[in-house]
Nucleic acid binder design. Sequence first.
DNA 1: TTGTGGATGTTATAATATAACTGATGGCAC
DNA 2: GTGCCATCAGTTATATTATAACATCCACAA
Lengths: 164, 164
Amino acid sequence: MTILAEPPPHTDTLAHNHQQCVDDALKIADQLCTERGVQLTAIRQQVLALIWESHKAVKAYELLDRIKPLQAAAKPATIYRALDFLLAQGLIHRVESLNAFVGCSCSGHQHEQLLLICKQCEQVEERMAAGVMQVLAEEFRQAGFSAHSKAIEVHGLCRRCSQL
Amino acid sequence: MTILAEPPPHTDTLAHNHQQCVDDALKIADQLCTERGVQLTAIRQQVLALIWESHKAVKAYELLDRIKPLQAAAKPATIYRALDFLLAQGLIHRVESLNAFVGCSCSGHQHEQLLLICKQCEQVEERMAAGVMQVLAEEFRQAGFSAHSKAIEVHGLCRRCSQL
DNA sequence: TTGTGGATGTTATAATATAACTGATGGCAC
DNA sequence: GTGCCATCAGTTATATTATAACATCCACAA
Ligand SMILES: [Zn+2]
Ligand SMILES: [Zn+2]
Ligand SMILES: [Zn+2]
Ligand SMILES: [Zn+2]
């Protein structure tokens, strides 16, 4: 269980205490994997930690570059396998419109999420948006469609960037 | 202005008269481009017609293969340029979660759309879903987020495929 | 004529993702 | 212990998706 030691250079440190975000995410991941009897191996944890270096969505090959100091042998498959695992466990989300990945900020409970993606600062805000999901469900019902998975992604300017 | 002559082999002919879909789409595209003073060139129209061969989302390289009988010199850039044009004119939509493209069934009026994507028959149904958009807008407002573009895509089973 | 802008041709390469096979580890039945 | 199995990771190769950069062509206008 190796965790990155240094304050990561990629973090866009905002007003909030981001280290707390990282610590929480790793702790929850650990708990959850134990409960489920699946293995949060060193590589998987490192990838998760790298994704959590900021609230930006991260590309697979960016992760590959960043993990190399820790895993010299890393290849694309190394990353994609870890991503598959983390996605399956609901610990990260795939941002379809960016071909990128972001940490799940409500890990532990299954949920559908709305992703608000800032064009300026690139941070991704995840919202449960229960109201949206409910209205969506009504829309499916009318269409006779049974939903299995959803990608609800909105690009624009976040509050901070709108105010600049 | 060459239009495909043969009934296309890719079309998943349903109960509806799909030739009507195609004819309408091409006619509207033609009108719209004229109004806007942009050129719906032969290549662009052929790509649009190929996309409309069915209600499935089509991949760029699939289009490249299919256009070669008509445009022997076609290369990736040929297709991507046509797609860029058609996207800019709102004549097609990009399906982010599939890296694929589908004809817009409400061409002419700007709109945001919900895409219902069937895992079984692969057809994509486009819905205006005004109610969903309204609730979404309320969600942004609360988050202080100003939206520029949206990708709202749901995978599942369409009515027909659910009933099988 | 001579440029100008838009469209396309052409070549090369970047970026994203998966397949397929190999080897290593550790638990567990026998 | 031995053999077996499942899981994970290493490795090589390749498939798929997308863009960059520069050349050419042509219609049209100054
Ligand atoms: Zn944070
Ligand atoms: Zn922002
Ligand atoms: Zn049709
Ligand atoms: Zn279907």
